[in-house]
């Protein structure tokens, strides 16, 4: 009986020893790499933002200058998203919004887009999508420059009827055989621009208190 108890105790001690050792190693690696990970993540985010908001347009810490936007129909979002604000010498220059096109050929297409303070598009990028490879995936910049067709476009120049693919009488290119995907993207971008028009004043507000409410 005592022998069993002793061997059980030994086993338990053994297991505890290895768990403590494991925790120690993990914790120290975590603390050693924490700052580097944060830095890489920020650098990656900045790289993406820089594609649509050139560095010349802002001098603020754009990654920290955020605004939480609740779910919105015009943006197609169903939860809180972050908007990044670009400011140059204290002047508002652009805002980066997230938007979701719900009606891709196979589900949602997640976009980020930059809108300049004057209402022009700085650029659009597809973050994730499930469109058919080789057919609808030309919305990715790595596959084709199609998405750059949005650069510089605005609702001041293009009216609602223009925010369509050429096949439907609009201004935007598409590739034969795959029209559903660009239709969805063009529609979502137009709606996001409408959202910007309606909420322009709120988007750029500097507010310390909002950081708390955003959590």
């Amino acid at each position: 009986m005592r022998r069993i108890a002793r061997s059980t105790l030994q086993t338990a001690v053994n297991l505890v020893f290895f768990s403590v050792l494991a925790t120690a190693i993990l914790a120290s690696t975590y603390f050693l790499t924490r700052d580097a990970i944060k830095k890489s993540e920020d650098a990656e985010k900045l790289k993406l933002i820089n594609q649509i908001v050139p560095p010349a347009l802002f001098d603020n810490d754009i990654i920290r200058d955020t605004l939480s936007i609740p779910a919105n129909e015009l943006l197609g979002t169903e939860g809180d998203t972050l908007a990044y604000r670009a400011r140059l010498k204290g002047e508002d220059s652009a805002v980066v919004l997230e938007s979701i096109a719900p009606d891709g050929y196979s589900g949602r297409i997640r976009l980020i887009l930059a809108v300049r303070a004057n209402g022009e598009l700085g650029g659009v990028r597809v973050v994730t999508h499930k469109e058919t490879p080789g057919l609808g995936d030309y919305i990715e910049l790595t596959k084709s420059p199609w998405i750059k067709g949005f650069d510089g476009k605005s609702r001041a120049v293009y009216k609602d009827a223009d925010w369509k693919v050429k096949k439907d009488g609009g201004q935007f290119d598409y590739m034969a055989g795959a029209t559903i995907t660009p239709r969805a993207v063009v529609k979502a971008v137009n709606k996001a621009l409408i959202y910007f028009e309606q909420n322009r004043d709120k988007l750029f507000v500097v507010n310390e208190a909002q950081k708390e409410s955003a959590k």
Partner: peptide, 15 residues
């Protein structure tokens, strides 16, 4: 533990 360490290192230096 070893995998997690490798994961942290890659996350930090090969993002």
């Amino acid at each position: 533990v070893l995998v997690t360490v490798v994961q942290y290192l890659m996350n930090a230096y090969m993002y």
